[in-house]
Amino acid sequence: MGTKHLSGPPARGAAAPALTRTGPVTPGRPHRLLRFSRQVLATRLVGMGLVITAIVIICAVFADVLAPYNPNAQDYLALTQPPSRAHPLGTDDLGRDVLSRVIYASRVSLQVGLIAVGIAVSLGVTMGLLSGYLGGWPDTVIMRFVDAVQAFPGLILALAITAALGPSIGNAMIAIGFVSTPAIARLMRGQTLSIREREYVEAARVLGASPPAIMARHIWPNTTAPIIVQATLLVASAIVTEASLSFLGVGVRPPTPSWGGMLRTGSQYLEVAPWMAFAPGGAIFLTVLAFNFVGDGLRRALDPRLSGRRSG
């Protein structure tokens, strides 16, 4: 699909410097009070996100020290006990301490979430940038592959991959990373397509910048905000996907505690012991929320255009 580039010899130094100016928009005059309150709030959410994320990381690293009980120790004298002083989040159907299991399960979620998204971002950004900028057959090949992977309903493909490779944490990471790649690649390509037709990219091309330089210096920096927003959502969804796999029984094998696995068991005891389903779901919810808050804070910090806008 040969796109019409500005062809002909690049006239070095001939372009007016003003054309290449890509600086941020001059901000309007924000209402001072609103801007202040928004910043305070934003800071507070980011702070909250950082605190929760830190708590989850500490839980994952120091689970041995923090958990009051062995997460797999069964107590047949304390089956499905409601929350009490001895068991702050109650006990499950085998008399295991729910709090201890929730703490240990943070390990699984964090590992899978971070590594899977790492795989997805490195693959997706490269694919989208090459595809959108080069056009032609690289675009066709990459996008057909992306289309094919994305055409699969994500969870179903992750289920099938994990089922085929054998249920384990590592295979869940691979499956989820693979399944998350198209979202990044597609977004990156859409951004690249739109940006490469803008005047400053044309100008850079006229000035003789090489395609790698244009991609790296003029296109990629203008796409970081949406990519970060997307990657943040992906950590969230990777954690949820892992939990979904475990909830459906294809993820982490019992008795290893995982939030999704605990919900699976909890769903069978909803009428007698609803607390079995409350705590692990709440843990997923808060962890995902925290990653979103941190990501949102990053977005604000990274995009100058969002930091001082007119309020209405």
């Binding site: 939990a243 909830f247 919900l263 769903s267 909803l270 997923i284 929320l289």
Partner: peptide, 17 residues
């Protein structure tokens, strides 16, 4: 933000409960 973070199977269980 809450809606995004809410795992659907947990939401489903809470609704059923």
């Amino acid at each position: 933000l809450g809606g995004i973070a809410l795992p659907s199977f947990w939401q489903a269980l809470l609704f059923v409960y």
